[in-house]
């Protein structure tokens, strides 16, 4: 496919080009802000679960490594 001629006859004008860029999402996304998520409901619960899980695992594994060493 690399060497096949690109048929861009579908781009006839600046408007077509802009439409192509838009449909393909060819932007610098760093310039588009991502809104921070509102942590509420079950998401808040999931985060507390994750904190508890990570803390528990770190403690167990620290003890495990002390055991190995």
């Amino acid at each position: 496919m690399e060497h096949r001629k690109i048929d861009y006859s579908f781009i006839k004008s600046k408007e077509d080009w802009d439409r192509f860029l838009k449909s393909e999402g060819l932007y610098d996304y760093e310039k588009i802000r991502v809104k921070r998520a509102k942590v509420k409901g079950w998401v808040r619960f999931a985060f507390w679960f994750l904190r508890a899980y990570v803390t528990l695992m770190v403690v167990i594994i620290a003890l495990g490594f002390l055991h190995i060493l």
Partner: peptide, 25 residues
């Protein structure tokens, strides 16, 4: 890339894009 000859200069339009976006385009 070999480009066909049409009125709107796609190659010129491509050159105006940042390099990473140009190659993706």
């Amino acid at each position: 890339v070999e480009l066909a000859d049409v009125k709107f200069d796609v190659e010129k339009a491509l050159e105006q894009l940042p390099q990473d976006i140009r190659l993706r385009a």
